[in-house]
Every structure is written in C-alpha cells, then in structure tokens.
Amino acid sequence: MGNMKLTLKIWRQNGPNDKGRMETYPVNDVSEDMSFLEMLDVLNDQLIREGKDPVAFDHDCREGICGMCSLFINGEPHGPGRGITTCQLHMRKFKDGDTIFIEPWRSAAFPVIKDLSTNRSAFDRIQAAGGFVSVNTSGNLVDGNAVPIPKDDADKAFDAATCIGCGACVATCPNGSAMLFVAAKVSQFALLPQGRPEAKRRVLAMVDQMDKEGFGNCSNTGACEVECPKGISLEHIARMNREYLAASVTKE
C-alpha cells in the first residue's frame, strides 16, 4: 500500500459527560492517494482487528457537499487547504513522519457525542425558527417566471445558499460564533423577492434562536470566511447585521 508513517493525536471521549483526552496512534502504510477519512478507515480497521474501540467520526457523502464530516485537523477545521471539506482533503498534503492533531468541533452548542462526533442539531433549530419561506405545497402557485429576479441577486443568493451547514465557521471562530451560518440563510432569503415578506420576522427569530443555543458573538475576525469550505463571504454577515438593525428599529 502506501509508504507514509504518521503519528495521530486523536481526541477520545466516551460521551458528553466524559472528560476526554488526546491519545496517540501510529499508522503505517498510508498512501498519498488516500483521502483523510480513508486514512482514518485504515486506522479503524487496525483498531478493530486489535480488539480496540474504533474512533467515531461523522462522514457521509465523502464528496464535500453533505456537510457531515467535521474534523479539526492541526488547528484548522477541515485541515489545511482552502475550499475543501475534510473528506476532500488528501494525504498528499502531509509528509512521511508527520504528527497530526485531530479534534472534534469545540463549541458549547455542539456537544460531543463520542470521540470526534458532535451534535449539531442547534443548526436545525435555528433553521426551524425562521429559515424558510412560508409557502405550502400547492399545484397552483404562480409560474416560476412570474417574478423576474435580477441575475446578480439570484447569483448572490445562490452563493449564500451553498452553505453546507458543516459548522466549520463555529469551530474556527475564536468566539464560537455561528454568525456565518445564520447570515448565509438570512441573506439568501433577504436577496430574493420570495423571502422579503417575512424578512423581519425571519432575522429576528433566527438570531434569537442562535443566541439561545449558546453560540458566541461575532468579532469580525474573518476566520470563518477563510475556513468555510464553500467560501461564504463576510458580506452576508454585514447584510444580516443590516437586516436585523432595520428589523429591530422598525418592529412594532
């Protein structure tokens, strides 16, 4: 197989109430063609054969779109490299003999389930608070072309909508803030005519829920934008700030 030997320092934690600790695992035979998660598969295969407990980590599509994978690798969410998720990170980014630190997302709002796996349902609850357009299923809606949308607005809304909800923004933010995630959703709908009627309600409700979940406050360090695998821009946070300010001031 491969020819790289690595030392992995991995966070092990049995459950939300366990204190957790870093443990060291050597892995041999790592090929540079492997993805980072395949390298962990190799480790787990080894651990199972040795009768040990494999490392729990979240992953699903392994092509960078589902947002399920979530590792803090050598001090960065989704590891080194820009515009990729952990599952798209390949081992050729590392060298033989490297030591790699692997930790879960750390946030009060994302409690650890086990090892590297965390509970991100806080994002779902924020979405449920207002991240939608209130339209029921109907076979009789107006035609999709009834309301033209300027291409630039549609494109910007799309850029915001590419968020995969992985939580890297929260993980990397020194304050554990979820502003980029929330702003992406608020901004997407704020930019589209379909989202305008309930724009005020939406931004107030979503920010309120975000605060209740225990995320930190944005201090505009911009770390989230750099680490976001989809390159969501800070512009969306500014737009949310604007929307929220206007909504707070004009609220009846």
Binding site: F132, V133, V135, G144, N145, K151, D155, G195
Partner: peptide, 24 residues
Amino acid sequence: VSANIIDQCVAQGVPFARDYGGLL
C-alpha cells in the same frame, strides 16, 4: 407535475440560475 415542481421550488426561495432578464 414536473412544471409544478419548478413553481413550488421558486416560491420556496430556491436560487435557480437566471438570465439577465431575471427569468429562469
């Protein structure tokens, strides 16, 4: 029902690609 799907998704705020006239 395929045409209804597009109308439904547009109403939900799905940002489909558009041309410069603002149409799908």
